[in-house]
Nucleic acid binder design. Structure first.
Length: 898
RNA sequence: GGGCGAUUAGCUCAGCGGUAGAGCGUCUCGCUUACACCGAGAAGGUCGGAGGUUCGAAUCCUCCAUCGCCCACCA
């Protein structure tokens, strides 16, 4: 038998967490069970990168998803939370390359195969770490279904998708302007480029005009540029035809400075007439806008910057220079030639590589692209039509705006770590061969165009987000028609940070629809960023990163989870601090101690093997007031929590539970029940056990460990316990029959009386331990009399005189309080000064007068009565009546004082 | 250049059309047999500013201010 001696006074998370997690995992609770009649619930976990360890963002993800998953599991739905990890192509390759650099090696020193071997080793290690970390965070995901993006299944999904897109004409290879990171030496998608403001310069450069015969004149057209080194790749100068000043020059030619190449002056509306001189040098090889203008005017693209960021042989006099040295050198030469009109300071934003911070170079290069428009359309419709719902709603507009303005996605990466592109090039005719649609896994043996066996597979790999985009269906078995896929797809909720709405969420909707014809998930829940106590982003360089496991070690997993779950509204960032974690720890401790008290009471009052029966609905009316009250409050709370969780108001639900558990169950019911328990009252014992059980169930998704630890000790005493473990216990159902507004009203009166007595005691400095005589007068004396023992105990008021007659209160020498529905007096001879008491009551009288006045004024307004809902009017009238009652009482007390 | 969010008690944040809330902090008491990771009590807010809609606005609309974020072909 469990006794209180076995339960320590303070909750020690470290003594329970590992064992409880083992209990769950070994019990098979993480695998989908539940009622096959009910709709299944499924979340596919956003796969953390195998770059290293989990951070607070992952802890937040785990917490929110685990809350949803545990809630649905307890509702008896077949529930699957599918975990996984992401190979994170460029990020992981960079990490391993940095490791190699410590040994003085580059990936090229090792060669592709040996390098990949190193990355695999790294990935296996971090995978193990990550898996362990999820467990420490209490994640109840199904480890038997864990997936890795490079696993056979997801890899087959990737290849199948690429092949189908190719044959549908939605994947193509072409020379386009892309973002190039000279350090990572790979192409990047637009999303992988982060723009930052920089103080740069704007050079105004003279391009000598040529006459009809192609001879230089002494006139110039002046253009402004921030990147003079790209002048060597200029193929035209463009002006806006609206600009009077330049119109005469359209159709003439000028010389590119330094390199002396004659180029046309063309007209294009895309040129901003207000920027610089209103004339723009056109460098299709190194600028996105110029590339577009170049295509419109069929201009060639010259690439003058190499993959390493150095000027290449096309750069003439700049060849061999680093791009930034080249900039200086160009400016120097222009100066020398008198072609530099002037330079200005100029603040503008520059693209940086998301993974390494290097300034990205726009370069024309041959890459693979996905044609996004046709894919985006269905994804737009899915959200517009509510088949995918985004929470919070404000992100809908952001999502739609991005999709409606989407551009083609560069998916090839010049990396080694990732899914190799399934395209082969013919050594004989140069044609591209992609596996046939009906057998995407078969490597082609002969060129599809000329039949030559001289085939070489593309060296490049796919953007890591390509495989991520397939995640919900690829992890469930697609392209195979598996039972999991049929059962759990579309998944229920996709929960992730708003920072990857475009990277991941939008692309999953597009690819999910393309591959399966169905949306990948019905709801998208977006959470915010976890920041440091000052609101700064947690970064290694600031040294303000809080390791989630450290927080778990120090405060307990439940504390961390409670804080993360309740720390912010959906989509909002949150600040995490030691103070908040302490608060979470304190709450876990409160739960522990309340539970400890109840378990102790059960052990004490029940015979060995005896169990308490749940409070019976049939006997509801005959239960004491406080029982009816707490059961009413409990079922009210169950209803509210259910509604909040349905609306994804996870934080609010957690706060409601905190309020109920601490502020109502512990502060009032448990304290009142103590008196009855001492007398062996069975109703009190049953209600207490029942309320605790239901509270533990409701709290379990938020604080799974402390609740399970207690429940394991509570369960043996409960006649109604349905399961072996709380994780699988049925979720409480709100029952209207237990709602009891009359009990709540009456308890409100009782609580008011207790508070008033406590207030008087504090006001007049009565030592908390001392018992004092007390008088209460109330029209509802009967209600109060019924709870007299509790009131006595809570207010340390004995003897307690209860009467319906206000005249029964001592007239003088007493501290008094007047509340709606009752008057309270504590005869504190010698402590109460008449003058001070008078002042106190006088103050309250004025307050009451103001209140009556305000309410009366509002109720006197015809418009208010006419337009406000009847309910509101009635409530105001009640309030006015109560305020008047109080006012009357205060007047009488003052009179009595003399 | 567009868009979004925030602005509520000293701090961190909920609330988003019907009497201003929580946690932490502050002050005063208290080791009352679950919990000092606690209990009781108290102080503290013209809900960023200005207009408007409404019987009624922290909550809806308009404008403004400050901070932050996202997007954009800021040559």
């Amino acid at each position: 038998m469990t006794t209180v001696q076995e339960l320590p006074k303070a909750y020690e998370p470290s003594q329970h967490e590992a064992a409880i997690y083992r209990l769950w995992e070994e019990g098979g609770y993480f695998q989908p069970r539940g009622d096959p009649q009910k709709p299944p619930f499924c979340i596919v976990m956003p796969p953390p990168n195998v770059t290293g360890a989990l951070h607070m963002g992952h802890a937040l993800t785990d917490t929110l998803e685990d809350v949803l998953v545990r809630w649905h599991r307890m509702k008896g739905e077949p529930t699957l939370w599918l975990p996984g990890v992401d190979h994170a192509g460029i990020a992981t390759q960079n990490v391993v390359e940095r490791e190699l650099a410590k040994e003085g090696l580059s990936r090229h020193d090792l060669g592709r195969e040996a390098f990949l071997q190193r990355v695999w080793e790294w990935a296996q290690r971090t995978r193990a770490t990550i898996t362990q970390q999820h467990r420490r965070l209490g994640a109840s995901c199904d480890w038997t279904r864990e997936r890795f993006t490079l696993d056979e299944g997801p890899s087959r999904a990737v290849r199948t998708t690429f092949v189908r897109l190719y044959h549908d004409g939605l994947v193509y290879r072409g020379e386009r302007i892309i973002n190039w990171c000279p350090r990572c030496r790979t192409a990047l998608s637009d999303l992988e480029v982060e723009h930052q403001e920089h103080d740069g310069r704007l050079w105004f450069v003279r391009y000598p005009l040529l006459d009809d015969q192609g001879r230089p004149t002494d006139q110039f057209i002046v253009v402004a540029t921030t990147r003079p080194e790209t002048i060597v790749a200029d193929v035209a100068v463009a002006v806006n035809p609206q600009v009077e000043r330049w119109r005469p020059l359209i159709g003439r030619r000028c010389l590119v400075p330094v390199v002396g190449r004659p180029v046309p002056i063309i007209a294009d509306e895309a040129v901003d007439p207000r920027f610089g001189t209103g004339a723009l040098k056109i460098t299709p090889g190194h600028d996105a806008l110029d590339f577009e203008i170049g295509e419109r005017h069929r201009l060639p693209a010259i690439v003058s910057i190499g993959p390493d960021g150095r000027m290449n042989e096309q750069a003439g006099p700049l060849a061999g220079l680093d791009r930034f040295e080249a900039r200086k050198e160009m400016a120097r030469r222009l100066q020398e030639l008198g072609l530099l009109e002037r330079e200005e300071a100029h603040r503008h934003s520059i693209g940086h590589c998301q993974r390494c911070g290097t300034i990205v170079e726009p370069i024309v290069s041959e890459q693979w692209f996905v044609r996004m428009r046709p894919l985006a359309l269905p994804a737009v419709r899915a959200v517009r039509e509510g088949r995918v719902r985004i929470v919070p709603r404000r992100f809908v507009r952001i999502y739609l705006h991005w999709l409606e303005n989407i551009r083609d996605w560069c998916i090839s990466r010049q990396l080694w770590w990732g899914h190799r592109i399934p395209a082969w090039y013919c050594g004989a005719c140069g044609a591209v061969t992609v596996p046939p649609r009906d057998d995407p896994m078969r490597d082609p043996q002969r060129c599809g165009a000329c039949g030559s066996p001289d085939l070489r597979q593309d060296e490049d790999v796919l953007d890591t987000w390509f495989s991520s985009a397939l995640w919900p269906h690829s992890t469930l078995g697609w392209p195979d028609d598996t039972e999991d896929l049929r059962r759990f797809y579309p998944t229920s909720v996709l929960e992730t940070g708003y920072d990857i709405l475009f990277f991941w969420v939008a692309r999953m909707v597009m690819m999910g629809l393309y591959n399966t014809g169905q949306v990948p998930f019905r709801y998208v829940y977006l959470h915010g960023l976890v920041r440091d106590p000052h609101g700064r982003k947690m970064t290694k360089s600031l040294g303000n990163v809080v390791d989630p496991l450290e927080a778990v070690d120090r405060y307990g997993c439940d504390a961390l989870r409670y804080v993360l779950a309740t720390g912010a509204a959906p989509g909002n960032d949150m600040r995490l601090s030691a103070e908040k974690l302490e608060g979470g720890r304190n709450f876990a401790n409160k739960v522990w101690n309340a539970g400890r008290f109840v378990v102790q009471a059960l052990a004490e009052h029940l015979a060995p093997g005896e169990k308490v029966e749940a409070p019976s609905g049939r006997r509801r009316r005959s239960l004491p007031l406080e029982d009816r009250w707490i059961l009413s409050r409990l079922h009210q709370t169950i209803g509210r929590v259910e509604r909040l969780l349905r609306q994804f108001q996870i934080g609010e639900a957690g706060k409601r539970l905190h309020e109920f558990f601490w502020g109502e169950l512990c502060d009032w019911y448990l304290e009142m029940a103590k008196v009855r328990l001492r007398q062996g009252d069975r109703d009190a014992l049953a209600v207490l056990a029942y309320a605790l059980d239901m509270s533990l169930r409701l709290l379990h998704p938020f604080m799974p460990f402390v609740t399970e630890a207690l429940w394991q000790r509570l369960r043996p005493h409960l006649a109604w316990a349905e399961t072996e473990a709380l994780i699988a216990a049925p979720w409480p159902r709100a029952r209207r029959s237990w709602l009891d507004s009359e009990a709540e009203r009456q308890m409100g009166l009782v609580m008011g009386v207790v508070r008033a007595m406590r207030n008087l005691r504090a006001e007049w400095r009565v030592e908390p331990g001392r018992w004092v005589e007390a008088f209460v007068a109330s029209p509802e004396a009967g209600v109060l009399a019924g709870l007299a023992p509790a009131v006595e105990a809570l207010a340390r008021a004995r003897p307690l005189h209860i009467s319906p007659d206000p005249a029964s209160l001592p007239a003088q020498g007493a501290a008094t309080a007047v509340l709606p529905g009752a008057q309270v007096a504590l005869p504190l001879a010698g402590l109460v000064e008449v003058e001070r008491e008078r002042e106190r009551l006088q103050r309250q009288l004025q307050e009451a007068e103001r209140e009556v006045e305000g309410l009366a004024r509002r109720l006197a307004q015809a418009e208010f009565r006419a337009r406000a809902p009847a309910q509101v009017v009635a409530r105001e009238e009640e309030r006015l009546a109560a305020a008047r009652q109080r006012l009357e009482g205060l007047r009488r007390r003052l009179q009595a004082l003399g």
